[in-house]
């Protein structure tokens, strides 16, 4: 759609610069605030335990450790979905859209990422339980790739289905 190409050459680099600045700021906050995330890890662990204990016996939790007689599962940095949230926030906030679109985008995207990440952890725990030899492969490769695809899909969904550029 060549007719839709913005005529102003200024907005594009500004958006990318703002994206990078916000991204760097959020990432710096993320790496410097590990302790602040510990309660979240505990809540996440407890929530995963809550679901798994409905169907399986033997699970328990302690802090950010999900325990089972056959394994101990530590929920820590990297298991939190925060990287996807940082990217989505840094992409949505400086985007040339209305404030309402941005707010709704963030209010929908962040909880959705957290919920999807929660089910990712549940599935990883089930993998560890039923197919421990595949755990590393699923953890490091399959679910990481799927989370990237999901994050792109979420941003594209917001962009295609909801955004209106202020006239």
């Amino acid at each position: 759609m060549p007719s839709n190409v913005p005529q102003s050459g200024f907005r594009i680099p500004r958006y990318i610069v703002f994206f990078l600045l916000l991204f760097a700021g959020l990432y710096a906050l993320f790496v410097s605030s590990y302790d602040a995330l510990l309660p979240y890890f505990s809540v996440l662990t407890r929530a995963v335990y809550g679901l798994l204990s409905l169907f399986y016996e033997g699970f328990s939790w302690d802090g950010n450790l999900l325990k089972h007689p056959s394994f101990v599962f530590e929920i820590t940095r990297g298991c939190d979905g925060i990287t996807s949230i940082i990217l989505i926030v840094a992409a949505i906030v400086p985007f040339p859209a209305g404030m309402r679109e941005k707010a709704i985008g963030l209010l929908v995207a962040i909880p959705v990422i957290l919920v999807v990440n929660y089910f990712r952890i549940v599935l990883l725990a089930l993998t560890k339980l039923h197919a421990p030899t595949y755990f590393q492969f699923m953890h490091a490769y399959v679910f990481q790739g799927l989370m990237v695809l999901f994050t792109f899909g979420l941003f594209a969904g917001w962009l295609f289905l909801y955004v209106r550029r202020p006239g």
Partner: peptide, 12 residues
């Protein structure tokens, strides 16, 4: 340009 064009092509 295309990404911003997607937003611009939406009804407004």
């Amino acid at each position: 340009n295309s990404v911003l064009g997607i937003a611009k092509s939406s009804p407004k």
